[in-house]
Design a binder for these strands. Structure first.
Lengths: 202, 202
DNA sequence: GGCCACAGAGAACGAGCGTTCTCTCGACCA
DNA sequence: TGGTCGAGAGAACGCTCGTTCTCTGTGGCC
């Protein structure tokens, strides 16, 4: 295990659990066992370490997700498997929301490097969902992928705040409705008309 | 305008735009024109000010949302109006994501008061969506409300990161599919997965 | 064996922050 | 009018943090 890997592992655990600003370099030194001088030889500043942390986490998340999906066959099962993977992640002991949304909220407007890493990750996940929705032969794969992105991000935030994995199941159910109902719904309705309006008041 | 209101207004603008940890009390003093001594008479600590900021923003957001919805008639229009309001908010110059998700990511694990304020806000919004879904007479109003919460939170995060209001439109389209397709989909399909039972979690 | 270059451990430095203190001045009231 | 109280402006204090420096020890090379 290289020194750089030891530092990144410690930084990942601490940054993800407590937030970037709440963790000082001293704590990363203590957790990794690598002296500060050495840490600064690998990463010239804390900002560089934070960016490396995000890039590493991006690789981890997408690799794990794609490996999980690859164990399924059938285009719909593969797409819904995304949300099963999410459930397992949420249900584990080390889930603390989306590291990218958290980092963006903390530093996004103040660090270009962090903002870029967050946008790159979100774009890559979006692109992956696009390939899955195209596989299914859905009528509107692009729109469906964009909607699934919202379910994904919403589920991560809600699961973190409510400390419950249930949002993954709710997102899965919504994804299936969107997948099955999308063709019927888009075929019947058009996007800006005032609905049927049966006006049933409570 | 009371002193307390001036402080809260300045704190709201600064905390929301730059994040809580990035804004010092000195900047709130400069922006509000209220001396530090006076600020500490109203709010005994920065943590108390942060909690007041979140409570105030909760009142603002829910009041604005409910007033917008109240201008619409028809249960479906009222529900979809939530996402139109979201679009206008995203499209304005002062949108920086969900203040509660941001604050939770920054301080959630370190401040019980902040975590409580965030959870209270999310629970109140969830409850409001529940009343709207019940109005529509949807087959599964509880599950539908939980799914709409995910779309709402996901749209806020994605709009913030991509700096585009488009996610509000995508969430609106998804909400309409869920609303129209939910009864048909749940009535027609008979997959054996347990998504309906799980969707009740609060 | 003697010199050198580098690594580790910890202190030190400068900046920023939350919080409190001091000094001054003006308002109010007997 | 004189005395007291409180408010404003800013400095000060103690702490934390990112970053750098110093001191000590050790292994490699002529």
């Amino acid at each position: 295990m290289t020194v750089e890997t030891k530092v990144l592992s410690a930084a990942d655990a601490l940054f993800y659990q407590h937030g970037v600003q709440a963790v000082g370099m001293d704590r990363i030194r203590d957790a990794s066992g690598v002296p500060l001088k050495r840490i600064y030889q690998c990463f010239p500043s804390k900002g560089a370490l934070v960016e490396a942390y995000l890039r590493r986490r991006d690789r981890w998340a997408r690799t794990a997700l794609e490996e999980h999906v690859a164990r399924h066959t059938g285009s719909e099962e593969r797409l819904l498997a995304v949300f099963d993977w999410l459930y397992d992640w949420f249900d584990g002991p080390n889930f603390h929301g989306c590291a990218f949304i958290n980092a963006f909220g903390e530093l996004g407007s103040g660090s270009q490097g962090v903002a870029d890493a967050v946008r790159d990750h979100k774009a890559a996940v979006h692109q992956y969902l696009r390939t899955l929705t195209h596989e299914t032969g859905a009528a509107e794969p692009e729109g469906l992928a964009a909607q699934l992105v919202l379910l994904l991000d919403g589920a991560m935030s809600t699961a973190s705040i409510t400390a419950s994995p249930a949002p993954a199941r709710q997102a899965r159910a919504a994804a299936r409705t969107l997948l099955n109902g999308a063709s019927a719904a888009t075929a019947v309705t058009d996007d800006s008309s005032p609905q049927i309006a049966d006006a049933q008041q409570v």
